[in-house]
Simulated scan of single mutants.
Amino acid sequence: MLWIKAFHIVAVVCWFAMLFYLPRLFVYHAMAEDEISKERFKVMERKLYRGIGTPSMVATIVLGAWLASYNGAYYAASIWFWIKLSLIFILIGYHHMCGAMVKKFARDENPHGHVYFRWFNEFPVLILIAVVILVVVKPNF
Rank of each mutant, 00 (worst) to 15 (best):
G72N: 11
L85R: 06
F20G: 04
M31V: 07
A32T: 05
V115N: 07
L48D: 03
K84I: 11
A73K: 07
F41R: 06
A11N: 03
D108L: 02
N110K: 05
V115A: 10
L48N: 11
S86I: 12
A76Y: 08
L85T: 06
F81I: 01
W80S: 11
F26H: 12
S78G: 01
L67A: 00
F81V: 02
R118C: 04
E109P: 02
H29W: 05
G64Q: 09
G93M: 09
N121W: 15
R46V: 02
S56P: 10
R50I: 04
L63C: 12
E35D: 03
W119Y: 15
P23C: 13
C98K: 08
W15G: 02
A59K: 14
T60L: 11
Y116W: 14
W80F: 14
I79V: 09
G99V: 07
I90N: 02
K42R: 13
G113W: 13
A106V: 00
I61E: 04
G99A: 03
L87G: 10
F16R: 05
F41H: 07
I90Y: 07
M31F: 05
L63E: 10
P55S: 04
V115S: 07
L87F: 08
G64D: 03
A76M: 08
L67Q: 03
K104P: 00
P111V: 10
Y116L: 07
C14R: 00
N71E: 05
K84A: 15
F41A: 01
W82Q: 15
V43I: 12
S78Y: 02
M18N: 13
E35Q: 01
K103W: 01
L25M: 14
G53M: 09
A11V: 03
L63I: 07
F117Q: 08
N71M: 02
G53A: 04
V27K: 14
A17Y: 09
E35R: 01
P55Y: 05
W82D: 13
D34R: 00
I90F: 07
V58D: 09
H29Q: 05
E35T: 02
E33H: 12
A73I: 00
M31L: 14
W80D: 12
A68C: 08
D34K: 00
F20I: 09
W119M: 14
V27M: 15
W82V: 06
F41N: 04
N71P: 00
F89I: 11
R40N: 01
A76Q: 11
E122L: 13
N110H: 03
L63K: 15
G72Q: 11
E122P: 14
R24S: 04
Y75L: 09
C14Y: 01
A59N: 12
Y49C: 05
F89M: 15
L19H: 03
Y75E: 03
V43L: 09
G51R: 08
W66M: 11
R46P: 12
W66S: 08
A17N: 04
K38H: 03
A32C: 02
K103S: 09
V115W: 09
A30W: 04
L67P: 00
F26S: 05
H95I: 11
F89Y: 10
A68Q: 14
A30S: 06
R118N: 11
R24N: 04
I92G: 15
A59V: 07
I79T: 08
A32I: 12
K42G: 06
F89T: 12
L87R: 06
G72F: 08
Y74S: 09
Y28P: 01
W82F: 14
E35A: 00
G113L: 14
